[in-house]
């Protein structure tokens, strides 16, 4: 199968795919295709291929297209000869589903949109689930959370954020969420709230590996108080998890600033 054939098959199948073209004079037109199966093609060196693949996966998460320059062997900062590449992503926007139309949902919708998600806010209460209260959401839906999610499109790039804060909604919703391959499942609530949830989920037959998929208490430990800060904390956790990072301070870490391998298309 040629690169073009695989590329075309991805587009027809509505599957995310990135097409990379080398632009500089050394190997003009060299191609690399990156999709969920791996990569195909050659930009000139194995390290360059690996570096560009990681970059392409990160861009692909949000369907972004970019020009990048690397060293001829894939060094992120070129010192000698440069490889210039054009990375073109073809991907539908990933979904962020926010359950519960509370103050935190408003700021979460805003930062979700900012990150490139298609944001849907779901609440069973028509009084709260209004576009006026959550202006940045692409969609505000009045529905029972678990019923909504059962019929929603979910893939590995999907983010599910449970802000309902009410066991009666949380438990059925989390049971549905754990049945999907969503890349992020976060649930708001204190440690005590979550301990109670875990107990109920266990009673419903959920085991440790699935329980470990739930980010709760939700967010990174940045001391967030306001809805804006809380949204920032949750958004940071989403990004950190996606790139397989702990979320600590860079100055306290010895690993490279930019991830060398990316889990972007999970």
């Amino acid at each position: 199968m040629t690169i073009f054939e695989r590329f075309s098959a991805s587009l027809h199948g509505d599957e995310p795919v990135a097409l990379v073209t080398r632009l500089d004079d050394d190997l003009p037109g060299a191609k690399l295709l990156v999709d969920r199966h791996g990569r195909l093609g050659d930009l000139g060196s194995p390290r360059l291929n690996a570096t560009v693949e990681a970059e392409a996966r990160a861009l692909l998460t949000f369907g972004q297209t970019a020009l990048r320059t690397f060293g001829e062997n894939g060094e992120p900062i070129p010192l000698g000869r440069e490889a210039r590449v054009f990375i073109q992503s073809f991907a539908p926007k990933p979904d962020m589903y926010i359950f519960g139309a509370i103050d935190f949902s408003r700021t979460m919708a805003r930062i979700g949109k900012y990150l490139g998600y298609r944001v849907t806010v779901v609440d069973a209460r028509p009084v709260f689930a209004t576009a006026r209260r959550i202006p940045d959401a692409d969609k505000v839906v009045v529905a029972w959370p678990d019923e909504f999610l059962r019929n929603a499109r979910v893939d590995a790039r999907t983010t599910i954020i449970v802000l309902t804060h009410d066991q009666k909604f949380d438990i059925p919703l989390l049971l549905v969420a754990l049945g999907t391959d969503a890349g992020y499942i976060g649930a708001m609530g204190s440690r005590r709230t979550h301990a109670a949830r875990v107990e109920e989920l266990r009673a419903a037959g959920i085991g440790d590996p699935d329980l470990a998929r739930i980010s709760a208490p939700i967010g990174l430990d940045i001391g967030a108080r306001t809805p804006e800060e809380t949204a920032l904390s949750i958004a940071s956790e989403i990004v950190a998890l996606r790139s397989g990072r702990g979320g600590g301070r860079l100055r306290d870490s010895a690993s490279p600033v930019h991830p060398q391998t990316s889990h972007a298309t999970r």
């Binding site: 297209t65 054009f86 073109q88």
Partner: peptide, 15 residues
Amino acid sequence: ATVVGVEKSAPRDPG
């Protein structure tokens, strides 16, 4: 032929 970069206002985006 693919647009790979634009400066200032251009009628079509990269891609």
